[in-house]
Design a protein around this nucleic acid. Sequence first.
DNA 1: GTCTGGCACTCGCACGCGCCGAGTGCCAGG
DNA 2: CCTGGCACTCGGCGCGTGCGAGTGCCAGAC
Lengths: 338, 338
Amino acid sequence: MLSERRLQVLRAIVQDYVGTEEPVGSKALTERHNLGVSPATVRNDMAALEEEGYIAQPHTSAGRIPTDKGYRLFVDKLAGVKPMSPPERRAIQNFLEGAVDLDDVVARTVRLLAQLTRQVAVVQYPSLTRSTVRHVELLSLAPARVMLVLITDTGRVEQRVIDCPAPFGETSLADLRARLNSRVAGRRFTDVPSLVEDLPEAFEVEDRGTVSTVLSTLLETLVEENEERLMIGGTANLTRFAHDFPLTIRPVLEALEEQVVLLKLLGEAKDPGVTVRIGHENAHEGLNSTSVVSVGYGSGGEAVAKLGVVGPTRMDYPGTMGAVRAVARYVGQILAES
Amino acid sequence: MLSERRLQVLRAIVQDYVGTEEPVGSKALTERHNLGVSPATVRNDMAALEEEGYIAQPHTSAGRIPTDKGYRLFVDKLAGVKPMSPPERRAIQNFLEGAVDLDDVVARTVRLLAQLTRQVAVVQYPSLTRSTVRHVELLSLAPARVMLVLITDTGRVEQRVIDCPAPFGETSLADLRARLNSRVAGRRFTDVPSLVEDLPEAFEVEDRGTVSTVLSTLLETLVEENEERLMIGGTANLTRFAHDFPLTIRPVLEALEEQVVLLKLLGEAKDPGVTVRIGHENAHEGLNSTSVVSVGYGSGGEAVAKLGVVGPTRMDYPGTMGAVRAVARYVGQILAES
DNA sequence: GTCTGGCACTCGCACGCGCCGAGTGCCAGG
DNA sequence: CCTGGCACTCGGCGCGTGCGAGTGCCAGAC
């Protein structure tokens, strides 16, 4: 087991490296942090930490930098989550409250996160799975063409145009609309399939085909939209770690374009609190030299989607975690209100 | 005026530079293009072209590279638009036809453009201004809370939650819905204001406040959404011009995050055909070393929105213009069908 | 007049070299 | 177990040099 002081040394190394972006040596450490011991002692501790795999030397006779394992220990044991200051909180709240619709909420959240953390922000749209149906609307576009509009309690709207197997009258449409809504309004999305399965039986034979088509489209919308959409922003922040250039950011940009990858990334975080995945802990290769800080957010107590940031493993974990947590909290509030 | 051969020399310089990304010298030119003259002659021509400002030397005793002015001449006079090959066309069409809704159309278009041109693609959502109202839906969420859903002929859906000044009954709501739709359905968006202005008068006094609120929200939606949304993709392609690094791509990434900037950029293109803005022709500073190739697209003959790509001034203009034009054409088709 | 080959000249760039200093590991002594 | 001292390592930086691509100019050919 590592002694208390060695842990302190590791903490100091992480903090310094995050600040300076340069390998940190034993002398610099003793100067900036009053550890109460000499550089030589620190050197011994560093040797031990290196032995254990928490830090590494980029080149012989250079300072040490933390490894992924080192950051992991730092995040788990050595650092807490730095709470946002009250003025910051107020700023977050104010900024988010100006949103006019769901798209706007998400867009503002992305900007906010990117600005606060100075990193790339990723926000998943509130999921349909956990949320409830507020209303289903059916509109007749043509005799045999219907538009289905699904509105969720998170303010999300999905629409599909349906070609009906047979013409469908206005009265039948109104009937279907009414029956559908009385059954599913306010219900969990996951409950919908069983709630509507016997619905075609209530209709005239000639309309049943259309009703079935509408219902299956509705269910499809549910499933399809579980492949969530998301919004990203702050990619310009990638240029901040500009030394190790194209090599580093190229794969990151590529990964960010792959929505699937990002969704999996966010999805992996099971923890109810803030989750941090460091370097190689990320399944995707392109993100092996980045860390992902994510957390679920939701309108009620429950998480309906995730948000987070992607940045270099060398990041200010406590601050980033604090910002991510705070933003998630306020987005949840906003969603609950609307 | 420049002689025919000098124009050919300029064309050759542009083509070579675009291909190799390196300043091109007189000798290399005569080798790769059979101009029928010696390097010395070409040198004289180059001196003349430089005098006129079409090309420049990055350093004394290096080859020449085209200036913005040189590219401009190239685009205007020396090169056409390279049409897509039939297989390419088919691929485009197939890819776009798989889309399930408007978001998907736009998302696919972005991916396609980015892949075809290997540059950053920008696609504006079809505008509300030029399009027509397909349907307006009103839903009662609570006694004094109404959701307004606006559906356009381009398949776009916008929604707003409205807090009413007074409770608003279901029957009044149905009445308003019916009247509203009979007036605006199928009408141009720009005509809507004058079509609905006298609508409150048809209602009971106690409902007029709510009706007015709903109407003004509707009009607001129209105006607000004229600040169009857009989708971008292919940012990873920025890393391809990787020499002049962070310096170049940083401002570009920043500009790309500013939707306003991009919209202005696309909006500036008035030409009915493909528009090319080269380097400093772009108002935004961050894009001074990039070119923007854009074109309008639309469901009918009319353009309802723009799409385009952003790339280094050193780009394959004929190919890019061809790809942009082809994609715009097929997106228009898809929109008209749905 | 226009084009061509030849020639001297210019510079940017890659390469090699040596110095410097930060940082290390180890050891003997407190 | 900590500390100060010491020899060693090695990456980075500045400098000088040689090379070569490319130019401009000029005298001669068609």
